[in-house]
Amino acid sequence: MTTVVLADDQDLVRDGMELILTAQPGVEVVGTARDGAEAVELVRRLRPDVCLLDIRMPRVDGLVATRTLKADPATAATAVVVVTTFDLDEYVYGALRAGASGFLLKNSGPALLVEAVRAAVRGDSLISPSVTVRLLQRLAEPAADRAGDVLTPPEHRVVSRVARGRTNDEIAADLHLAVSTVKTHLARVQQRLGLRNRVEIAAWAWEHGIVRLR
């Protein structure tokens, strides 16, 4: 059972997301919050698999709540997905840098909301398609330096596929590797580069020219 805490200061939005998620098999909403401070307390107490956070909330906003949760060893294992109305670059980068596993616009629809939760549980990530295109276009601009030489050839192959949104299972099948080997490569890359999750690995890969838009 995937457990979820969700936070949004609008009752209708919060109730709507709860209805969507509780209708899914294997998903349980164990707590709801009206602001980021309440969300942090719920996560500390309930230890859910995933926390959905709006950005603009009273007392503590979603970005601060994300940083707080990911910085605390007691709550860092909870995957955070930011769900917002505001399609602003500063929010996208802020959420990902804070450690969020996904960034979803509220108008993305029920299917993407559910998939964002399931992706977060798998250790993958989901970013709204419109945001992804813009993000990758900007990250694909020429960087001041190229850091591909810090990766071994096997790591380079794995990272380039992560940057294109492949799951660990898909990468393993594509490269004829065990899934455990893929995870080992990613863990070494994260440790060497100081990256916290596969979203940051993907962002690093685009930023440093490991992959290009086709």
Rank of each mutant, 00 (worst) to 15 (best):
R198Y: 02
R164C: 13
E170I: 02
A144S: 10
D89H: 04
L46A: 10
L52H: 13
N197V: 06
D169A: 13
E38N: 11
P25S: 15
D89E: 14
Q24Y: 00
R67W: 14
L21K: 07
G36T: 09
F86I: 03
P153V: 07
A187S: 08
V114K: 00
T32D: 15
A23Y: 09
Q24I: 12
V81I: 09
L151V: 09
K70R: 12
G26V: 06
T2P: 04
L105K: 02
V189K: 00
V29C: 03
A119V: 00
A100Y: 04
R212T: 14
G26P: 03
T132K: 01
E155P: 12
D149V: 05
P58D: 15
D8C: 13
P142T: 05
L186M: 07
L136N: 06
P73G: 15
V82R: 05
D8T: 12
V27T: 12
V179C: 00
G109Y: 10
E38C: 11
E170V: 05
L213H: 00
A119W: 07
A33N: 09
T167F: 01
R188C: 00
V81Q: 02
E41V: 15
V117L: 04
R134C: 06
M1A: 10
G194I: 02
A147P: 06
T167M: 00
T84P: 02
V182W: 04
N107Y: 13
R214A: 14
G16N: 03
S128G: 09
Q24G: 14
L213M: 08
V158Q: 03
T152K: 05
T66D: 13
L19S: 15
